[in-house]
Amino acid sequence: MSTHDITVTINGAATSASVESRRSLADFLRHDVGLVGTHIGCEQGACGACTVLIGGRSVRSCIMFAVQADGAEIQTVESLAPGAEMHPLQEAFRRHQGLQCGFCTPGMLLRSLELINDNPNLTAEEAREGISSNMCRCTGYQYIVDAVLDAAAEMRAEEG
């Protein structure tokens, strides 16, 4: 066992902490930083519930140690709606019933955000393929795909 001082940027704020080497990034975010929007499902990298963005890229925070993230820029689901107003993606998920129990939703939202950032004009097929990295046992995925496409359209309109 060893402990290490790390400094990371989480949702724009620089954060320093001392972590045990075996502390997963997901547990660090939930228990040490108090950002419990990041969910932990399988703890073996299969389900995607713990997805966060590092430097804008989706990663599984349950199979990454916090110490590995030293120096990284981390974005969690809490960054989407810092105030009272929901992000267009969150609105679209609500509108299309792209969630039911909500367990996969933080990971789905961040993976979807990455997909839209990479390609604002993504097709239904690309959205379906893109979110295949994340498991949802409620919706059957169709409503999530609908929500992602709708949110992409709205975000394009906002950009335009």
Partner: peptide, 9 residues
């Protein structure tokens, strides 16, 4: 589960 303890370098 969580990882067993180890020393990180």
């Amino acid at each position: 589960m969580k990882s067993p303890p180890f020393e990180y370098h």
